[in-house]
Design a protein around this nucleic acid. Structure first.
Lengths: 224, 224, 224, 224
DNA sequence: AATGAATGAGCCTTCATTCAT
DNA sequence: AATGAATGAAGGCTCATTCAT
């Protein structure tokens, strides 16, 4: 209530101020990714960011405690983006395939492909953030998208599948998750184009599926 | 003697022909790992290293062109250590098993186990070096130990095996190599003890073996 | 306001729009000449300059890209000062002499005298800057004041003179310019007071006039 | 006496030791010029010199108090070389021209040309040394060759000349000397090739001759 | 809210010189 | 005489952060 009067009622200006603040914050973050993309991590200084964002350093510090927090926000941002993409991809395809059933391999491929394509555009920035997260303890966060797969499998979500349920231990999940993450990271480093190659995707799917099959066979009482 | 032109001083930096020099170099490197281990990469400055090593900065620069070269030397050192370990492990076990044949799975396990144990002690330093190498183009070097496995498989060294030859494409080799490296790296980060757990080793072996099996089945016309 | 992209910050370094900034810049430059004067070039370090200026090193670098730029600014400053002085001297005297004509020798004397007196005070600093400019390619700039003379003569500005036009080749101009500059530099070194002696001035005027006369005689077919 | 016995008579080895020492010293100096020529002043460090000379730093310090002394020795060396050249040039030409008289202009030209060509070969090193001497108080020394001309003229050595004696005050001599030196220095900097151009030589001769003529005319009562 | 001048610890590196061997 | 490992002050420069306006 009472948000219109354009007087100097400082207390009332909450909403518009917040809106502007949110916008400023976003402008800073956007400038940050661009800077990261264009100049790399070493050139990513608060002063340069301020210039690039069109604000002054002081303003930056009005929105972020310190430099690291900016990087963290960026990383979180990227992770969320990947998470959303993956969820979308999974639900969308399930939807598309109405009537038909998605095999386990299908699902694996969806997850893998989504991951592989997550790094299109702003690759440099993404790689840097990925690395940063990896170097700190934050990959628990960063890996969440990949973890989805493992969770999905472990939770028996594919139970309706003709192939039966697969039980993955937490170690299994870790291994699977990190294998994918590690491979992507390395691919990013060595040759970004390799990542979106069909052969690459196939091999990665095979790796995951091979592992899951092994586990199923071990568990499988119905398939001697 | 002095009037003969000196041995052109092989560019690099003083070839430490003297015993003292060699010792100094080693003292510096030892101090460097310790510093890396105890204080991390950010605290790894040449001045601090000098202090820690008990020399003056100048001395450091008598043995190394610049800071990066120290890190490189350290990384190379570690890689060699791993390479030696792996070679030893492979030959030793083959020897032990005289008469008996080592299955493909046996060999995979040897490689995997050796890798997993390579990071005992000085884990932080090792992780930093591993990361550093990874970020530069030097992972080709750093991965060499793991690559051994892929090479071994691809080269058909296990041809006499009842299981037949396996052909791995370069993408396959990359995937396998990076999966192992990525998993170890993540494990190092999350919980060093997990790495030397039998379950962990098993899972990793399964991952690799599963993938190789898949490839074999795809190739195998003689074993339906 | 903050959301408008800023004026692209003309690359160089912060354009000191603010009064304080301009003042700081000048304080730094002033401290710089004093430091140069009192302690010489070898003692002219950025840290010492900062201390002398009463700022921190960082501030210095907020106004100048690097150390050389400070020296350049100083040199430019000095050169401009000389250029202004010389222009003033020439126009003033021409004005004073209204009605009467200034002979070539008169003009030469004006230029020479102005140059000779340009180094009053802060001689050491001036010499250093002069030298520095000389060593780089900037002497084209530094010599500009003296070049004025040659240009004036070569351009036939004194054409109305009874003495006729003098044509100076570029080599002639170079020789004249550098002779004067070299002599002043050496005088500065050996004995600053000698420079403002009438005998010194006379001799220098004679040197220049003698050369010009020679050239005129060589050219002059109309005045045997 | 007693210099042959190859025993360990340390006291007697004086002479051969001195010979070797002289040689070492010269080797160092030769390496020094080469280093200066090839790498410039900034790269001229004692350590690098030691390497280049094929000795160790310590040895350098056995022969020279400090770095500056090496530079001084080099400069002196160069100066002597120029002095010798100039003397040779003067006497040789006087000799060649037996019968004929060398005019004042002839002599001036000899001096000027010799100076101009003094910087052929090892130009960089020579320029550096020239500069160094100029920046310190040592140009009194460095200028000696040029001073010869002034001295010659002032001393009336050309008295037998039809053109009569010229008296140059010390200020005149200074001016003449420094004009030549300054011009050469500037030419060296701007374009070494310009220096050996006939036009350049002519102009320089004209400058000097013009000045001397002026002085003679001022003194000359016998030649109206 | 925003500014941006100012800070200063700290970074990497160089190099003239010493001295025990 | 010769060596060369060691020294360490000093240099130029960066940048996250603060704070008065």
């Amino acid at each position: 209530m009472a948000s219109q009067p354009p007087s100097k009622s400082t207390a009332k200006r909450r909403a518009p101020a917040q809106a502007r603040a949110r916008q400023t914050r976003e402008l800073i973050l956007e400038a940050a990714i661009q800077l990261l993309e264009k100049r790399g991590l070493r050139a990513f200084s608060t002063n340069r960011l301020a210039t690039a964002a069109g604000f002054s350093v002081g303003t930056i510090y009005q929105y972020f405690e310190n430099k690291q927090e900016i990087l963290d926000a960026l990383a979180r941002h990227e992770r969320d983006r990947r998470l959303v993409r993956m969820t979308e991809a999974l639900t969308m395809r399930v939807h598309e395939a109405h009537g038909r059933k998605l095999t386990l391999r299908d699902r694996i491929r969806i997850v893998v492909r989504t991951e592989l394509h997550a790094f299109d555009g702003r690759q440099r920035a993404r790689k840097i953030l990925f690395d940063l997260a990896w170097r700190n303890d934050q990959h628990r966060d960063m890996d969440r998208p990949v973890t989805t797969l493992a969770a999905m499998l472990a939770a028996g979500e594919v139970a309706d599948d003709a192939e039966g349920v697969v039980q993955l231990s937490s170690i299994d999940a870790f291994i699977l998750t990190q294998a994918v993450a590690g491979i992507i990271r390395a691919g990013l480093e060595r040759d970004e184009h390799m990542l979106v190659t069909p052969e690459f995707e196939d091999a990665l799917v095979e790796l995951v599926a091979g592992f899951v099959d092994t586990r199923r066979r071990a568990q499988g009482q119905h398939k001697p």
